[in-house]
Amino acid sequence: MIEALQFEFMRNALFAGLFASLICGVIGTFVVVNRLVFLTGGIAHAAYGGIGTALFFGIPYIFGTLGFSLGAALIMTAVTMRTPERSDTFIGVLWAVGMAIGIILIDLSPGYNVDLMSYLFGSILAVPAGDVWWMTAMGAVTLAVTIYFYRDMIAISYDVEFARLRGVPVNLLYFLFMALVAVSIVFIIRVVGLILVIALLSIPPYIAEKYAKSLGAMMVIAVILSAVFNITGLWVAYMLDLTSGASIILVAAAGFFISLAIDLLISRRRKRAVARSRTENAPACGCGL
């Protein structure tokens, strides 16, 4: 791995992975505690419409995806606020519509076709240095907004009615955070693909939540876990000559299932300990009441 770092593309891949970890760990924590994984997936997929649009109209790719993901985030968030109980259907529809628009517009565009695979799994080994700078900037913005609105974020995520009573501009901040999610997704998709985005946004925060005592701690743990998954995945891909994005996802997934297995073991051990103390202390008849 160390000797691999003498290649510029490998260094860029590592930095891209680390900055993606930073953004995903922070944003993903907000997404997971607010149960917005599905909505975030919807935004990421709807952004595909932006690729087709950009190709068809010959505008820069980044404007197309930013437009679509921000638009999707805005509409999905508004619907979720209005009718939370049926918003999943609506999100699913927008998700599909965004992708369909993208594919049709690519069909209609003259010339070469965009490779769907590279969009889904990204091409972290082909990240240009310029993109790493973009991700650095995005990471800094994400961190600054999160630190400034940290208390509001806790209140909105934990008890939205109480936040509203305290005069927190709940709707405004909700849209702000979702816009941050949308913009982050666009920059990260470009380098790691949308499936990796969803994996990195959901898996590390999910594991972190169980061990964290505060939202901040959850973010820190999620960032570290995500970085570990990224580096390990890259290393596996390099050693075995595999697709890097998919390798990172599988490493993260392995982490996910190991954490589930550990949970199961702990809860079994606890149950056994309780049962043992019951049989030891129980009267002869065995009714431990």
Binding site: I154, S157, E209, K210, A212, K213, S214, A217, M218
Partner: peptide, 9 residues
């Protein structure tokens, strides 16, 4: 399951 301490609440 929300990770939050008493003082933060």
């Amino acid at each position: 399951s929300f990770p939050i301490s008493v003082i933060d609440v």
